[in-house]
């Protein structure tokens, strides 16, 4: 294996693994948020002021 090839594959693997993990985390957050009715981008606006106890 040449030096360039090892450097290239090392960087690509590292970037791919990290990107895959980030993608998984974000997607999982979106899915769960949607399932829970919160939405991926925070509380649903029209119901957000209904009840927000101070905690």
């Amino acid at each position: 294996m040449t030096h360039a090839a090892s450097v290239f594959s090392g960087y690509v693997l590292a970037a791919a693994a990290t990107a895959a993990y980030v993608g998984w985390v974000i997607r999982r957050g979106r899915t769960l948020g949607r399932d829970l009715g919160i939405g991926a981008r925070g509380p649903v606006p029209d119901t957000a002021d209904e009840s927000r106890p101070h905690d």
Partner: peptide, 25 residues
């Protein structure tokens, strides 16, 4: 999948809102 969450759950989720959206500013 929960189409219409129970009211108390919804409240709970909203209370957690600031924590639970995975993206904030």
């Amino acid at each position: 999948m929960i189409e219409t969450p129970e009211p108390d759950l919804r409240q709970q989720a909203q209370r957690a809102g600031s924590l639970s959206m995975t993206g904030s500013v």
